[in-house]
Amino acid sequence: MEAFLHQVFSGLATGGIYASMALALVMIYQSTHHINFSQGEMATFCTFIAWALIETGFPYWVAFFATVAIGLVGGMAIQRILLRPVENAPILTNVIVFIGLLVIFNSTAGWIFDHTIKAFPSPFPRGTFFDTQYFSSHEIGSIMVTLLVLVALYVFFRFTPLGLAMRAAAQNPVSSRLVGIRVSWMLALGWGLAAAIGAIAGMMVAPIVYLDPNMMAGILLYGFAGALLGGIDNPWGAVFGGFVVGVLENVLGAYVIGTELKLTVALVLIVGVLTLKPTGLFGKVVVTRV
């Protein structure tokens, strides 16, 4: 029973990270209807930046917030420079640009920071909170960070004019322009926020899985699974889905299929949700006939 609780709890900790990735995906999906395949590599790259800052001697939290800021600005820049020209291009074009980005981030991360596996510090070392056999300080801290991010985003979208404008732009770009919203900047901001959330997720997961250029691949896959499970057009559903797949992954891994097939579990989840319930648990039903 204790072991089971431990699995559930660490599942919640990684689930929080999946939830963040899922939320980042939804953020871009809602406004552009594109799935950003480079989300994981962007997050990894940001985490490398944080690592470099910490190595240079910056205090952890300075590096943390600097990285979030870099992610925000970098994400916006990518949207403005690389994605705006193909905004109205076919899906395939966009998918290829995303794959191009994935490859570029992955290889430049390896190029600049090399491929050796690096330890990444946790801001919540053992003893920060009450460690027990069920959960470590880092797990508690990481869940708290995830929840903080979620609350901050909720407040931003619910109560600020800019957040309202972003929701409006995602939903009805034409009307949004007619009330004076600069829609393409809202898309850029969405990218920026997604990149920043990804950066936080990367920094929270790196102490657990260690840092290397391919660190986020599997995590992104679980992010996808979570987003799809909850409904890729529903941010809160995606967050919920992220936590669910996190717990599912840990419990299944510990008791049913072992840890070697974790990615396969994600694959099965993704294909399963897509074929059986493409709208996810809380998604809107969009009917298209072909």
Binding site: P161, L164, A165, R167, A168, Q171, N172, S175, V179, G180
Partner: peptide
Amino acid sequence: TFTALTVEENLRLGGY
């Protein structure tokens, strides 16, 4: 209309 937003949010957007 921003159909998924509330009436009041629609109005707030008008004054954005």
